[in-house]
Computed example of a mutant assay.
Amino acid sequence: MPRPRSERARQAVLAAMRRAISAEGYAAVTIEGLAAEAEVSKQTIYRWWPSKAAILGEALLEGSIPGGDVSLPVTDDLEADLRAWLSASSVGLGKPESVALARALIAVTATDPELGAALNKRFASPIVEWIVERISHAKDVGDVRTDADAGVIADQFVATASYAALQGRPLSDERVRATVELLLRGIAA
């Protein structure tokens, strides 16, 4: 029977992960470095977490993504708002550490359904809710067809940003513009 986790050691490892991400970026994080920083053994870490991505996921559930606080615009121009969000979500992907972080989050989401659901609820759900609210408002003012499914549209925007992360490159201004125009053309009133 495995020994129960020491809450002090668990918190120390999670804090070490958050500090390492902020200081060095995900690619530079090692289990050895986390163990040294948290003053625990590598064996302790491996006993509690299957990968550094799993540690990252748990650390982010109790903390935040470095540079992840993007304010969501709300103006009278739906197209401009959606372009601004998609551009902002993609901008950080020009940095290798942001690409590594995004890929790690995608990996942990894919390999640990429970942790993935919690991460999606914390980080993706507010974005989806914002897009749904913006599309709903656009329906109310007559800019978007009333039969447009705001949830499906939101999923398309999140999928576009996720695909850019998997490719390891930000979306160009032209790609953002073309994506938003295409999606809006399909739902225009």
Rank of each mutant, 00 (worst) to 15 (best):
V74T: 14
S87K: 14
P66C: 11
D76H: 00
A59V: 01
A59R: 01
S87L: 15
E58H: 01
G67T: 03
E62V: 10
L78M: 08
G57H: 01
D81C: 03
L56V: 08
I65G: 06
G57R: 10
R83W: 10
A59T: 09
S64I: 05
A88I: 01
P73L: 10
G57M: 00
I65W: 08
L56R: 02
V70L: 08
E79P: 06
A80F: 11
G68S: 09
D69T: 13
G67M: 00
E79Q: 15
P73K: 04
V70I: 14
E62M: 09
D76L: 11
L60Q: 11
E79G: 01
L86Y: 11
D76Q: 13
D69C: 15
L60M: 13
E58Q: 03
D76V: 08
S87G: 15
L78G: 08
S87M: 06
E62I: 04
A88N: 07
E79R: 09
E62H: 12
P66E: 13
I65C: 01
D69P: 06
G68A: 11
G63Y: 00
S87C: 06
S89W: 06
P66D: 03
A84D: 08
L56A: 14
W85T: 15
P66I: 07
G68E: 06
A80W: 08
